[in-house]
């Protein structure tokens, strides 16, 4: 029972809390994979149609399926952080958690681990389904896929922490931000189209998002068969800034909650 400043055991305890929850509910696990799978199936049919009607898509038939799967990595990783944080609030558990030796940054780490697990289950299931459905394996992308995955996870974590911070500050009334913020990023991330189709005034905004560099990189791999390290580095650098901002904003919201006495009363 020492006052260790960083304890993997405490992080493990918080991960265990969510594993218990997932383990006892098959519908929950299926739900994680359900939406990514439906999205993948829908876009798979669109891609099938477009490959015969669009020369651009025909260059890389798996392009749209890869886009939707990568987009879901970003989306699920963000939800994995913010929704699991909301669960602590719904259950009015924050008071107990924060009088235990658990540090706020350990809670953050545990949310990132849980987010990774949920994303692997959700998007992994959809990615495997794409193989028999459309004879497309995103894993054929090879090592660049790992780079894209890591970057999209990082951006999702950053947004998830910012959403959790906003909800900690303004209460569960702000929980719709969990969906709203990430959807606002979708049109300018160039998920399904190159960012040069965006109006000129919007392109700097797109370039400020790590995701747009990832999706440009994905198209370079799939169409030009070229791995663009410049895009990867841009994404990584931006992600480090975003993630640091996410952690700082979350810790600031936690500090504000301690000042305002929210930790004991926040909940349903």
């Amino acid at each position: 029972m020492s006052a260790v400043v960083f304890s993997p055991r405490r992080i493990g305890a918080m991960v265990l809390r969510h594993v218990y929850l997932m383990r006892k509910s098959w519908p929950r696990i299926l739900e994680l994979a359900y939406y990514p799978s439906v999205q993948m199936i829908l876009w798979g049919f669109i891609a099938k149609f477009l490959t015969t009607n669009s020369s651009w898509v025909a260059q890389a038939p798996g392009l749209l399926i890869a886009s939707v799967l990568l987009w879901d990595i970003l989306f699920r990783s963000q939800l994995g952080v913010s929704l699991t944080f909301f669960e602590e609030m719904y259950s009015r558990n924050l008071g107990h958690l924060f009088v235990s030796p658990l540090r706020p940054y350990e809670l953050v780490c545990s949310k990132l681990v849980i987010s990774l697990l949920r994303t692997l289950i959700g998007v992994g299931g959809a990615a495997l389904l794409a193989i028999p459905f459309y004879h497309y394996s995103i894993f054929s992308m090879g090592l660049p896929l790992i780079a894209f995955f890591v970057n999209l996870m990082m951006m999702g974590w950053a947004i998830g922490l910012m959403v959790a911070a906003l909800v900690l500050r303004w209460g569960l009334g702000a929980e719709s931000l969990a969906w709203a913020l990430i959807f606002a990023a979708a049109p300018v991330s160039g998920v399904y189209y190159p960012i040069n189709v965006l109006p000129g005034w919007l392109q700097p905004l797109a370039l400020a998002l790590p995701a747009s560099h990832v999706f440009e990189g994905m198209r370079a791999v799939m169409i030009e068969h070229q791995f663009r390290t410049d895009l990867l580095l841009n994404a990584l650098l931006l992600n480090l800034i975003y993630l640091a901002a996410g952690v700082v904003i979350f810790l600031a919201a936690f500090h504000a909650a301690r000042k305002r006495g929210l930790l004991l009363h926040i909940g349903e």
Binding site: R10, A13, L21, N93, H96
Partner: peptide
């Protein structure tokens, strides 16, 4: 004023907290 996660069993809740306290 505070509660424990409702969908976890009593044993699961106590196990999580036992680990948080480093037992």
């Amino acid at each position: 004023y505070v509660d424990l996660p409702k969908r976890l069993t009593v044993a699961e809740n106590l196990t999580v907290y036992a680990r948080l306290y480093g037992l």
